[in-house]
Write a protein that binds this DNA or RNA. Structure first.
Lengths: 192, 192
DNA sequence: TATCTAATTTGACAATAGTCTAATTATTAT
DNA sequence: ATAATAATTAGACTATTGTCAAATTAGATA
């Protein structure tokens, strides 16, 4: 995780009411007025807090009639929390500069001359690099059927099922009712 | 962990320079001027930040000539970070009220009528309660020899060695050059 | 269409926080 | 004792933040 994200995450959890909101949501989705009511805040204040939590991807929302129900993304919370120690202690902050070499350069030897993926690396970090690259073939905001996802992956590798599954596991994509969609990059960074 | 502590911890890590300080210290102790220099800050500003980190027990300090060397307490950092998720997700925040019944009431059946400890409970939480109680027999700020610690524990139980060891493991006490001293209660709460 | 209801935006205000300079204290060295 | 070095305190300034009231937008319902 980079310094910026770590600070932003901690800043988000540095207000009692925001932590209370997350705690509330952990027992089920709530809409804005419910939150305002439970915490004795006005709707604008809740909007203000929600914005900060949304900014770091801690929330999903679902519209229902004219209410917006907020859900906590527990996995994102966990990934942030779990990254704190390693980021600070394992020198993750100062070594960040070295990561600047391009993604393509790092993964090119996993591909054949004609651009096919030889095989998905087993080493975690390298596997992620390859997945990030493959994810670049999908467009943010576009919804894909499973078949479309498979087809796209197949242009790189036969075992589309494994890679499609990895997209979900890593948080690069999410699936809802059989429809696949890319997650914004900010999520990947968190999920690593 | 209680809401208050969680917020205070996150607030402490919500400034880039403070996170940088912790990251620096993770590779070894530094004194104030070194920190100021490395971060391009003035000494007063470093003092300001150090104070916040010290307030939540994230630092130890050691005087050497007329410098103060700051050390990061990695275990405390880890305990805080590891508590975030469980505190927020496992309902740890709303259930806090129930813990209000007194320590003595909770542990009295581990003691005989004449006040001796029957045995140290094996269940984590109960063991901690007993240890907290026994710790109450020592005075904050007073340094004790190992022998003194043993004697004091022996008035409650024969196996002073185990209990003395537990004092260290749990963070209730710390030892330096064979001298034992109680940690302030704030540490216990963190270490749990 | 008109009317609710829910959420957001805007603007204001007080409180807090990060930073600095200048002055002070405390410790070590001359 | 005096000078030097390191850390803290005090005070000031600006930027940020949490909060609210009022106005606005967006959806659903009548």
């Amino acid at each position: 995780m980079q310094l910026n994200k770590l600070v932003q995450f901690n800043r988000a959890l540095s207000d009692p009411n925001r932590v209370r909101i997350l705690a509330m949501l952990s027992s089920g989705p709530k809409n804005g007025l419910e939150i305002a009511d439970a915490l004795g805040l006005t709707p604008p204040t809740v909007t203000h807090h929600i914005k900060k939590l949304r900014d770091i991807n801690l929330l999903t929302e679902k519209k229902e009639k004219n209410c917006i129900y907020f859900y906590i993304k527990e996995s994102v919370l966990m990934h942030y929390a779990n990254s704190i120690t390693s980021t600070i202690l394992k020198g993750g902050i100062n070594t960040m500069e070295e990561e600047k070499n391009s993604l393509e350069a790092r993964i090119k030897h996993f591909f054949t001359a004609d651009g096919r993926l030889k095989n998905l690396p087993s080493q975690r970090k390298k596997k992620l690099w390859v997945l990030y690259f493959l994810a670049g073939k999908f467009v943010l905001g576009v919804k894909y059927s499973e078949k479309e996802v498979n087809e796209s992956i197949k242009t790189f590798h036969e075992d589309y099922a494994t890679i499609r599954r990895e997209f979900i596991i890593t948080g690069i994509m999410h699936r809802e009712n059989g429809i696949y969609e890319l997650n914004p990059k900010e999520i990947w960074e968190v999920i690593q």
